[in-house]
Design a protein around this nucleic acid. Structure first.
Length: 156
DNA sequence: GCCAACGTTGGC
DNA sequence: GCCAACGTTGGC
């Protein structure tokens, strides 16, 4: 399996790239995804070694702030089992989990956020899932070509 | 805060 | 299975 590329959205007021960066080993589980299409990617497709952009939504400005690496593939999201957790879902059972998560490790913080406006202006990203009208998937595929373009924007 | 777009729920 | 009502996302 070649390395795959993804984008994970988060609201930084809830969990930011810096929060991930400051975790032990710069690693955390990516919990709380409660959308079936995103769940399917987490559960069925994300593999250790895959590369991930971290995107900050609902902030000013919004954009990609850094990269991370998947260090553990899809496994049950235990926060769904905890009635005191904000992401509790009583329909998800330990022996038949509805929701999944992965572990990610922060890799590189971009010196400057790559804003949504910048992404929209770059040739070659026109078909990026993030930039499609009405797109709100919180776990998205990124093509190798898109990854290369954006990584270069954030580089150096 | 507004609201378009999308997803989910539930009555029928 | 249809679809109206409702809830959420997320840019602006």
């Amino acid at each position: 399996m070649p390395t795959q590329h993804w984008l994970l959205k988060t609201e930084p007021t809830t969990f930011s790239f810096d929060d991930l960066w400051n975790r032990p080993n710069r690693t955390a589980f990516w919990d709380g995804v409660r959308n079936y299409q995103a769940r399917n990617i987490l559960r069925d497709r994300m593999q250790p070694g895959d590369k991930v952009f971290i995107y900050h939504s609902s902030t000013d400005p919004t954009g990609i702030v850094g990269t991370a690496e998947v260090v553990k593939g899809g496994y049950p999201d235990h926060t769904a089992f905890d009635s005191k957790d904000p992401h509790y879902d009583p329909k998800s059972k330990a022996d038949a989990p509805t929701w999944y998560m992965v572990d990610v490790k922060a890799a590189k913080r971009f010196p400057e956020i790559i804003t949504l406006d910048m992404l929209r202006s770059v040739k070659g990203l026109e078909k990026m899932v993030l930039l499609q009208k009405g797109s709100r998937l919180s776990v998205q595929p990124v093509t190798p070509a898109e990854w290369a373009i954006i990584e270069k924007l954030g580089g150096a």
